[in-house]
């Protein structure tokens, strides 16, 4: 389950990340994480606003995501949680007329800085989508190797990484004998884990998940949720979910969104049992949504 040590951290000097949010007690600071051999990154949003044309869909969000934690974003449809997620890896701007303002800082580095290369951002921030999206003509192996191939990694190194990623995604034992058969031949749950393997194969700094289980059956959902727990040992994970039980099961912290605003964020348990805002309470107790 451990990444190959040779390929981790070609560490460039990262600036010391100041912990700007004292009101949110991080249960592990970045330096502590590094000391534990965990290398998830800290993500912070500063006054993030997102627009679709003239319509402001997200109104100035400030939010910290702790390293090596799973942070869930919940809220009713249209609350802006998916938009926030898509702003983090700059996928939001793929939609015609859409743009965003504010800062998205990954360990202090601004994803939106003017000289930043879009493809570098997206390479460094992995994303798993609602529906499984294996590339239709590629084999299982080639699907996982797709991102590596783009970066020019081939041969033994690539196959080692594919194996590592498939093991990491808990799929290795199911597919190791048919790596050359097509990726779309797998079941829905396997396809989604294949996509997760594809995402972690390139060793992203951060993994975004946009309702990753909404197209899966209960058993497949359970597998993916277990996987998320394992992955947070190495990665910082942000997950958007419609489903509060899922947030309760997988997330360390939970952020509740409503109508484009961040209503409340805190440890998952306290959000669900003892929310400070009445709107959060109404939502988590199922009064609307």
């Amino acid at each position: 389950m451990t990444p190959e040590p040779t390929t981790t951290l070609t560490d460039v000097d990262l600036p010391e990340t100041p912990l700007t949010t004292p009101e949110v007690p991080a249960h592990e600071s970045a330096s502590e994480a590094a000391a534990n051999g965990k290398n998830g990154r800290r993500l912070s949003l500063q006054d993030l606003k997102a627009f679709y044309g003239d319509n402001e869909a997200v109104h100035g969000i400030n939010l910290e995501y702790n390293p090596n934690e799973v942070t869930a974003m919940i809220g009713p449809s249209g609350c802006g949680k998916s938009t926030v997620l898509r702003c983090i890896n700059r996928m939001h701007e793929e939609i015609p007329g859409a743009y965003s303002t504010g800062k998205v800082l990954l360990d202090g580095l601004d994803v939106y800085a003017s000289d930043v290369d879009l493809t570098a951002v997206r390479r460094a921030i992995g994303m798993v989508f609602q529906k499984p999206t294996p590339f239709p003509t590629l084999s299982i192996f080639d699907n996982v190797a797709a991102g590596l191939k783009l970066a020019g990694i081939k041969g033994v190194e690539a196959s080692d990484r594919v194996e590592w990623a498939l093991k990491g995604a808990g799929l290795w034992n199911e597919v190791k004998d048919r790596l050359n058969s097509p990726g779309i031949g797998l079941s829905g749950g396997q396809q989604q884990r294949l996509c997760i393997a594809r995402t972690i194969a390139v060793e992203p700094e951060l993994i975004l998940m946009d309702e990753p289980c909404s197209a899966l059956d209960p058993i497949a959902t359970l597998r993916v949720e277990e996987l998320i727990q394992e992955l947070k040992e190495q990665f910082t994970i942000v997950i958007v979910t419609h489903n509060m039980q899922q947030a309760a099961r997988v997330a360390d912290r939970t952020a509740f969104f409503l109508l484009g605003d961040l209503v409340e964020v805190g440890p998952t348990e306290s959000i669900f049992t003892n929310p400070t805002d009445s709107r959060t309470e109404e939502y988590v107790s199922g009064k609307f949504g």
Binding site: K131, P132, T133, P134, P136, I184, G185, L186, S187, G188, G189, Q191, C213, S214, A215, L216, D217, P218, A220, T221, L222, H242, N243, Q245, Q246
Partner: peptide
């Protein structure tokens, strides 16, 4: 849709 064998069920979700 893309997947061939897609067991769409939102049961737990």
């Amino acid at each position: 849709g893309a997947p061939v064998a897609e067991p769409v069920a939102t049961g737990a979700a």
